[in-house]
Amino acid sequence: MQQIKKRLLELEKYCQIWQTGTFNLNLLPSKTTPESDSRIQEFRHQLTIKCPDDKTRLFS
């Protein structure tokens, strides 16, 4: 649980200073990796989200 809290706090800190442009993952202290193919296959429905622009996207 502490790791999740730490990552969320890092994300919150980054978002507080992010003003314009695209989200830059390289500015986060922790590194992220995409989901594995097997996990995407297993959880495709849960990882697929309808966005505000009405497009459905898979988030890994």
Rank of each mutant, 00 (worst) to 15 (best):
Q2C: 08
Q3I: 08
Q3A: 14
Q3M: 13
I4S: 14
I4P: 01
I4Q: 15
K5I: 14
K5M: 08
K5V: 11
K6Q: 15
R7H: 09
R7A: 15
L8R: 11
L9M: 11
L9V: 07
L9K: 14
L9P: 03
L9G: 10
E10Y: 05
E10H: 10
E10N: 11
E10S: 13
L11M: 15
E12I: 07
E12V: 07
K13I: 10
K13D: 15
Y14D: 04
Y14F: 10
C15M: 15
C15R: 09
C15Y: 12
Q16I: 04
Q16D: 13
Q16R: 13
Q16F: 05
Q16G: 05
Q16P: 01
I17W: 07
I17F: 06
I17M: 12
W18P: 01
W18Y: 13
W18G: 02
Q19Y: 01
Q19I: 09
T20N: 12
G21L: 03
T22G: 08
F23A: 06
F23M: 07
F23R: 06
F23P: 01
N24S: 09
N24F: 08
N24K: 07
N24C: 11
L25D: 07
N26C: 10
L27M: 11
L27Q: 15
L27N: 12
L28W: 03
L28M: 10
P29N: 10
P29E: 15
P29M: 08
P29H: 05
S30E: 14
S30H: 15
S30Q: 14
K31A: 09
K31T: 07
T32Q: 11
T32R: 11
T33H: 07
T33R: 06
P34T: 04
P34L: 05
P34Q: 05
P34G: 06
P34A: 07
P34V: 05
E35I: 02
E35A: 13
E35T: 04
S36N: 09
S38V: 11
S38A: 15
S38H: 10
S38R: 09
R39D: 14
R39C: 09
R39H: 04
I40R: 02
I40M: 05
I40N: 00
Q41D: 13
E42N: 13
E42A: 15
F43K: 15
F43I: 04
F43C: 14
R44P: 02
R44I: 03
H45V: 07
H45T: 11
Q46D: 14
Q46C: 09
Q46P: 00
L47N: 00
L47G: 03
T48M: 01
T48K: 01
T48C: 00
I49E: 04
I49H: 01
K50W: 04
K50S: 03
K50Q: 06
C51G: 03
C51E: 12
C51R: 06
C51Y: 05
C51M: 10
P52T: 00
D54S: 07
K55W: 00
K55Y: 01
K55E: 02
K55D: 01
T56Y: 03
R57S: 02
R57G: 00
R57C: 02
L58M: 04
F59A: 03
F59N: 01
S60R: 08
S60V: 15
